[in-house]
């Protein structure tokens, strides 16, 4: 189902004319109304807008977690919007990292084990190398000494930093973050933002951040504003 698309080499993601309806019958709502965008490698983007404007819905479409009703999405030059479930799933593992508003760490596992979960699926490394990489990522987010801790033994800010490290586990080209600091205090919020910013600028990965916070949005390389299902 994948088809090559002649984008410029610097573009990691391109979406065109995305439409998405949610609900059924009289509750059916036209959430996204023909959204198009391009994300370049090594940049940090933000989408800001009021609640219900469709920014999270857009993020899930771009992250291949949801299926659009109309429009196309190319990731790394491959048409993903019409791809089969297994292709989209493989692309999520290989190309995309997610950070959600809630950390969504699995409580049965330690911090480093949570980070190793995407690596285990990709199966590109042996267990020793996976562990090394998990510990390096934990060190990168400032939690090098808490690798053996379970989720409930970490603070909210620490949990979210582990979630960021997990999103980076397979060195994805694109990291999608949905209100990653929405539940954190200012200090932790800034910490998370700094980590994401350094990933974009120092490691060349693309970050797309959805946020309510106009101050954070203003600090990104490109800030997009969304209202009523379209960019304004």
């Amino acid at each position: 189902m994948s088809a090559h698309h002649p984008t410029t080499p610097s573009v990691i993601l391109k979406a065109s004319n995305l439409h998405r309806y949610l609900g059924a019958a009289e509750n059916r709502v036209h959430v996204l109304k023909g959204v198009s965008l391009e994300l370049e490698k090594g940049k940090m983007y933000s989408i800001a807008g009021p609640s219900g404007c469709g920014k999270s819905t857009l993020l899930y479409l771009l992250g291949l977690l949801d299926q659009q009703d109309q429009g196309d999405i190319w990731i790394a030059d491959h048409l993903m919007s019409m791809a089969c479930d297994s292709t989209r799933t493989a692309a999520r593992n290989r190309l995309i990292g997610f950070v959600f508003q809630f950390h969504f760490l699995l409580p049965e596992f330690t911090a480093e084990e949570n980070i190793m979960l995407p690596m285990r699926k990709q199966a590109g490394l042996n267990p020793t190398d996976m562990l090394k990489r998990a510990r390096r990522l934990l060190a990168q987010v400032g939690l090098g000494d808490k690798n053996k801790r379970f989720t409930q033994q970490l603070s909210g800010g620490e949990q979210q930093r582990v979630a960021v490290a997990r999103a980076l586990a397979n060195q994805p080209a694109l990291v999608l973050a949905d209100e990653p600091s929405g539940n954190l205090d200012v200090r932790n919020s800034n910490h998370i933002f700094s980590i994401l910013q350094s990933i974009a600028h120092e490691q060349g990965q693309t970050i797309l951040l959805v946020t309510h916070n106009p101050e954070l949005a203003a600090r990104t390389d490109v800030s997009l504003k969304m209202r009523d299902g379209t960019f304004v």
């Binding site: 992250g63 297994s86 799933t89 593992n93 997610f98 969504f104 979960l117 699926k121 990709q122």
Partner: peptide, 16 residues
């Protein structure tokens, strides 16, 4: 369901 969704977001397949 939340844990399942997270695993799916990481690239775990339906078969997994």
């Amino acid at each position: 369901t939340r844990e399942i969704a997270i695993l799916r977001s990481m690239g775990y397949t339906r078969q997994d």
